[in-house]
């Protein structure tokens, strides 16, 4: 059962100019700089699918555990609100927060922010046809406000939050394009050496690869 969440000052909507878009008036627009306790990450993927289908996979928030790392459960709590539970790589600690969708343009764009809980984040995803129609460019801009909490988060989660966003977009693309997420966890190996754990952590291999199975298909 999820515990009660305390209301606390939290993420505001993304500034209008800092949208996930990468071009403004013909000029490349770099992502915002990290400062004042805010971390920004922008990442994009070229996905061989149409914007409408990709939007629908992303918008189905209860499906997020299938492709987002360490998200154990997402429960819809309203038309635009949901409750998120994330389990740390130690399998014991959890992080929980509520999230609200701020903008919802079917087939094109979703923007959200957390409203209370252990994570203070806001994000936006845009789905647009690539130049020359070589697939859909999925671009995510996400902001984390955690100040000194960033390192505590990293300790629990096992990944820097920026890298986690990059990996989740990679998983999203793999799932959308192939119906599965590549994995090696569970394969055989010989006896591991003394520093295997350190190496596995450095390679990011200790984080469980999301299941990747389509809930509706199975």
């Amino acid at each position: 059962m999820s515990r009660a969440l305390n209301e606390k000052p939290n993420a505001e909507p993304l500034p209008t100019l800092g949208s996930a878009g990468v071009i403004l008036n013909g000029r490349y627009l770099p992502p915002p700089e990290d400062k004042d306790g805010k971390l920004w990450v922008r990442t994009s993927a070229l996905v061989q699918s149409d914007p409408k289908r990709l939007y629908e996979i992303w918008r189905d928030v209860e499906n997020a555990p299938l492709w987002q790392e360490q998200i154990e459960r997402v429960t819809r709590t309203g038309e635009t609100t949901s409750h998120w539970i994330m389990r740390g790589s130690d399998k014991e600690k959890t992080l929980e927060w509520d999230s609200e969708i701020l903008a919802d343009e079917p087939g094109h764009r979703i923007a959200w922010r957390s409203v209370c809980g252990d994570s203070s984040n806001a994000g936006e995803v845009i789905f647009e046809p690539s130049p020359g129609n070589r697939g859909t460019m999925v671009t995510v801009l996400q902001e984390f406000r955690m100040g000194k909490l960033a390192s505590a988060w990293e300790t629990i989660v096992g990944r820097n939050p920026k890298q986690a966003v990059i990996e989740n977009v990679r998983h999203f693309k793999a799932l959308a394009e192939t119906g599965e997420i590549p994995r090696t966890q569970g394969q055989p190996h010989g006896p591991r050496g003394a520093v295997a754990g350190v190496k596995a952590a450095a390679y990011g291999e200790k984080i469980a690869t999301p299941l990747g199975l389509n809930r509706k298909a199975s």
């Binding site: 061989q48 070589r134 890298q163 693309k173 793999a174 394009e177 590549p182 994995r183 990011g204 690869t209």
Partner: peptide
Amino acid sequence: ACGNCEFCKKKIWAACDNTNPNAHL
């Protein structure tokens, strides 16, 4: 190779986007 990504479609199979779980390395 996954067979479905931009690179597999271009038949540059060794550049497949979707088969390296440690792509970040």
